[in-house]
Structure formats: C-alpha cells, structure tokens
Nucleic acid binder design. Structure first.
Lengths: 225, 225
DNA sequence: TCGTCTAGTTATAACTTCTAACGAACGCGT
DNA sequence: ACGCGTTCGTTAGAAGTTATAACTAGACGA
C-alpha cells in the first residue's frame, strides 16, 4: 500500500457505502432480474435520497459493470479453490476427478444465484463491450479448465477441429496443453453452459427430467471421450 | 372461418397495425436489446401519439409475450421445413444427415437475429411464467428432434441417464423413441445451445477460434457417439 | 341515416435516470 | 485548535418511460 491503501476514514466510508450499494443491487437482481435494477430504489432503501447515489457510481451502467466484474471474480475464485482442493487429493480418484469437481463447482455456483450466472453468460446488450478486466478473468478461468484437461489422457485420432486449434491457440496464452486438451476444455465450457443455462432458465421444468442427471450424463460423456 | 375470420375491415386494419407494431419492436430489439424496447418510441415512429398503442397491446409484457410466441413459431416452422426437406432426400447421405441439417438450420436461424434467439433461450425474468402455447411449440420442436434421433442407430450400452429417461419420458409425449434417442435429443439440444449461446453473446470473439468449426466439432462428436 | 363501437387524442400520475446548484459536515494541514 | 477545502447529501428539475382516464372524431353495420 504505497499511496492510498485503506487508511483515511473518508475512503473507508466510501468503500463501505459502495459495497452496501452492491449488496442491495444483488438482492434486486436476484429477485427481479438485472433489467429491474433501480438506483432510486437502492438509494431509498439505504435511507438516502435519489441522486446521492451518483456520488458513488456514475450511473446504472457503471454499477452493473462492476457487478459483472465481481461475479466473474467470484466464479474464478470458486474454481481456483476447487482446483487446488482436488489437486491436493491427488490420485485417489480417476483422472477426470478434477474436471468433474470443476463442473459441479460451476453448477453449485450458478444455482446459488442464477441471475448472477446470467449476468455473465446470459443475454448480452448489443452495444455493450466488456471491459478488459473481465476478459482477463475469463482467460484465468480458461487456464483453470486447461489445467484440468491437460491432466487427462487424449486417446483417439485428432479431429479437424483439433488441427484448427493447433493454429489458433492464442486464447490459451502460453499454456502447454495439447490440441486435444484445448478441444476438451472448449467442449467442457460449452456443454456445461448448455445444460446449465437451460436448467437455470427453467426450460426443463415440466419436462419431468432431472437436470442434475442430465448434467452428470453430459459430464460423463465428455470425460469418456 | 365461422365467426370472424378476417372479413370486416375493422379487424383487417387492426391486424395490420399489430403486425407493424411487432415489426418495429423487432427492429428495436435487434439493435438495442429487449430491455430497451419502448412502446412510446414505436408509437411515435408509426406517427401516433403514445397511449394510442395501448389499444393494440395491453402493455409491454403482452407485446413481448407475443414476440416470444412468434419467435418460437418461427423457429419451429424453420425446423419443420428442414426436417421435411431432408426427409425427401432420404438415404443419399449418412444417417446423421437429418440431425446435422437441423443443427445448421438452428444456427442459421439464430445468427439471422441473435436477440430473437435470446428472447427464447436467453436470460429469463425471475417472475415470468411462459404461456401454454410456447410450451406447446417447444414440445413440437422436441418432437422434430426426436424424429431425427430415432433415425439413428444407438450402439453402446445404456447409461444411467438412459434408465432415468426410461421412467421420465413425459416430455416426449407418445413419441416411440428409444431411451438412447431421447438422450441424444436432449444432448443435441443442450450442446447446440451451449455453443450457440456463447457464440451469439460474443464470448468467443477475441479468442481466435472459429465458432463455426467448434459448432461442427460438437455436432460431429454427438453424431459419432 | 343513425347509433354504436373503436381509434386516436390529450392530460395526468408515478415511475425511472441523470444533471445542476446549493448547503453542510467532515477531516486534513497549518 | 482553527480554518479551509474536499466530499457528501440535499432539493429542484429535465427528459425519459409505462400506463390510466376522459374525451373527441371517425368509421362501420344495421
């Protein structure tokens, strides 16, 4: 902490108010969705009147952007924890234990607050451009997935997409994973998201099937490729 | 047409205005997202002043609900067309030609208007309950998928999820598909949606990979199970 | 032709985001 | 310890939004 860490009481209070604003915002989003988020309502809930909130956030967009970043950060931290936790219990389970643990961690994180998940992976606003920190966290998440995929054996011949990935591995940074591992990471991401997104949106309700079992089946199939 | 088909000019005009309202609504949604849809702006665009629009739609929710239903209808019609088209060119291609054609039809339909896709499969509004006709169209779509899946051979042993589906096949109606076919239809749905949703939301932009190739790879893997 | 039903109008209420101008309090440096 | 400046919170207000109410003008059918 060189210049301004958390010392002066002005900044302490400011940070405290900002976090309380975000807490109220998360409550509103969880119950009514992000589109129903009202800065006015938050201000009134906190006992201050309307425009006072603009001292802390320049506007709705800035608040939502920070919520998105926080959501990304939360997901990345969760996955990092499970990754290190399963790395500790090394070879007691199968090779796919790491990926399976990540999958269930993602699902639990999403089910805990579906709207938080949709804030990241839901309907995008046409004009919106994600800030750099979210893309950084996103590649951080991909790195975790790649670590787990690199621990798996890759049998079977290389697919055309594997060859495509061989020439397009910018997104993996300098991760030393095989094209098959890159492929499995992408497939993991899309398949987990596919089941999860439909489940959270309620598209399975009334169908009679158990989303958890469908999720597990997709995971098994991915691991048994 | 027993009582009121499309005869009297009053109803003709009314239907015409309603469709024009929906056209303007689609334009707004395509460019700025569903949350930015403004009834007032639509009314002014059409030359009438504000509340006049409420003669045609009781409110924002009713308009959006009808847009969702129309989107479902459009998707179902598209898939029905491709299903019959590929059924005509019977055995000239492999067994998975039907499913592959459906997958590409879905993707083309989604790419044509991403926000329309997200209106169906995007972020749900927490309180919102879909009307019965949309669930009916949804099962109509599932029936098309099941037809294509039933045409495929199902090698491999039955998975635990197959056994789960054997006891929970309400959603398939009275479709005579094997549990493996039910499984493949669900997997098709979730995997297509997984890739497509992330692609349309722009989560692959900047990664360097070609979403079309990832989509094709997922489809190939599903067909080669 | 006349009556009714409908479409459009304005006015209004209750919201929203966000800007501007003002006052008061807090805390830092002297 | 005291002033001065930064910051916070206020009210007022503009420009939007959804939606309702009351009224007018028109078209359609009998």
């Amino acid at each position: 902490m060189t210049s301004t860490g958390t010392k002066n009481p002005r900044e302490r209070y400011r940070a405290q108010v900002r976090t309380e604003i975000k807490e109220r915002a998360w409550e509103q989003i969880a119950t009514a969705g992000a589109s129903a988020l009202s800065l006015n309502a938050i201000a009134k809930q906190m006992g201050m009147s309307g425009p006072a909130l603009y001292r802390y956030y320049a506007g709705r967009d800035e608040l939502i952007t920070e919520l998105i970043t926080d959501a990304y950060r939360s997901l990345a931290d969760t996955l990092h924890s499970t990754a290190t936790a399963t790395a500790t219990s090394d070879a007691d389970a199968g090779a796919g234990a790491g990926l399976a643990a990540l999958a269930h961690a993602i699902r639990a994180w999403a089910l805990a607050d579906p709207q938080r998940y949709f804030l990241i992976y839901g309907t995008p606003v046409p004009g919106y451009h994600a800030p750099d920190d979210t893309t950084a966290i996103s590649s951080e998440i991909m790195a975790i997935l790649l670590d787990a995929c690199a621990a798996l054996p890759s049998d079977g011949p290389a697919t055309p997409f594997d060859r495509h990935l061989e020439e397009h591995r910018e997104w993996a940074g300098d991760h030393p994973a095989s094209p098959a591992a890159l492929h499995r990471a992408l497939s993991f991401w899309t398949r987990v998201h596919g089941v999860l997104s439909l489940e959270l949106a309620g598209h399975f309700t009334g169908m009679g099937i158990d989303p958890a079992q469908l999720f597990a089946a997709e995971l098994d199939d991915l691991l048994a490729r």
